[in-house]
Write a protein that binds this DNA or RNA. Structure first.
Lengths: 235, 235
DNA sequence: TAGAATATCTACTCATGAGTATGATCGAGG
DNA sequence: CCTCGATCATACTCATGAGTAGATATTCTA
């Protein structure tokens, strides 16, 4: 983490003489800034936003609070940066899928897989839990807007799927809520040390969403209580 | 909980006829206590646990903070009470369904409907968001245990459904996470003034869970991009 | 109506944590 | 070697909010 200055020390850098130190400095600074954001994400993830002090974050980086403030303007912005880092891959997924020739259901599935992986990522917690309360009105609006984009994107894909016949007709709004909710919730239970990788989890979820609980095979075996479980009417 | 002194209070009670004032007092107290808990739930629901001070709750009840402390021991217990109030109907749903003769899928659906309604209730937020962080270790364990019971109950119903053929074979753990997640998330977006009632939302979700996104009808129309949307391969 | 529970208020304490003022340090360029 | 700017630490301020001490008010009982 602590990238001490890599200091190429210039020294006859090709012919180009001088803007290198400036550039190196700026790059260093950006690296450190990202380290701060990652440390914050990890801390928020573990203890929650309100139970994480900037002193905690600083301690995790082995620096002091003013140093943290040297890289971010305040705690709220810090959360916001974590949020952005978490949500970016989802936007990327939409872009990636945008111009694909494929039934909308498959495009939706691709987005959902990326979505699930993003939620299980280091920044998943921040992405999922930011906004609600504990944010200034302005910031809250901003985050809500970004989240809404994603919601609308999912709804659109569902509508397109219904149109092209690849998705069973349904209420796009409710379906989008159900899908996003299931995936968002991953942030509540997933921890690194899990047996499944984020990709595997996302894939499992997509399978569940696609198929539903009701058996596809016509079989439809028992419709009565099968083996054990006798009724004890008289309670 | 608070076992108030049953107060034999010595004094030849025995034949004594009228503990009525005592009883009335106790009832009053219980009513007020519940009012405190409801007020807290509403406040937590709106502004979140950490952004709600006990002064806020007191103000909502038009009393002062010490009065609130007269009815609950501290903020954490207050959240815990809200949690219990929220989770009770879910436990009730399990009990209700326990001795039913019906395919497990239908029993599961009944539970999920109650679950959804509970999450959309006044206490839904507290039930869903409690535990995580911001709770003492002991309380956290307690709440986790109660939540785990519900999770295990859902998994059990899924397993039973797979056995009796009413549910498509799947990973019970992942499926339970998906279902609970989708329903839990309702607490994040549902507000009273919605067009749909909690019952309607719960029903809609169960329909989605059951059927899945893939069309049931064999039709399977377009498998290619349908109308607009031409590819711009060259990026 | 005295006197007890019971119920509520006024006016604090005290810890925590966000954010800052100010000074030290260190590398680079002159 | 000295200065300058970038970086980081020490040591604060200040607001907030949980929880409490010690009244006071309100009933009900005797």
């Amino acid at each position: 983490m602590n990238s001490r200055r890599a200091s190429p020390s210039s020294a006859g850098k090709s012919s180009a003489p001088s803007p290198s130190p400036w550039r190196a400095r700026r790059r260093d600074r950006e690296v450190k800034r990202e380290a701060v954001i990652r440390a914050a994400a990890r801390a928020f993830n573990r203890r929650g936003y309100h139970n994480t002090s900037l002193d905690d974050i600083a301690a995790a980086l082995e620096v002091t609070k003013p140093t943290v403030y040297y890289y971010v303007t305040n705690k709220e912005h810090l959360l916001f940066q974590c949020f952005l880092a978490g949500i970016e891959p989802i936007h990327a997924a939409f872009r990636e899928v945008k111009d694909l020739e494929a039934p909308a259901r498959e495009r939706l599935n691709a987005v959902l897989r990326h979505y699930g992986e993003a939620v299980a990522s280091e920044f998943g917690w921040c992405m999922v839990r930011a906004e609600d309360q504990d944010l200034s009105p302005a910031m809250s609006r901003h985050i809500k807007a970004l989240k809404s984009e994603i919601d609308q994107g999912i709804r659109r894909l569902i509508r397109e799927g219904i149109q092209d016949g690849s998705i069973e007709p349904c209420d796009p709004k409710m379906s989008a809520f159900a899908l996003a909710g299931a995936l968002n919730w991953i942030a509540h239970w997933y921890r690194e040390d899990q047996s499944l990788t984020p990709a595997e989890i996302a894939a499992a979820f997509v399978t569940i969403f696609e198929g539903g609980l009701r058996p596809r095979s016509a079989s439809q075996v028992a419709t009565r209580a099968p083996l054990k479980r006798r009724v004890r009417i008289a309670r």
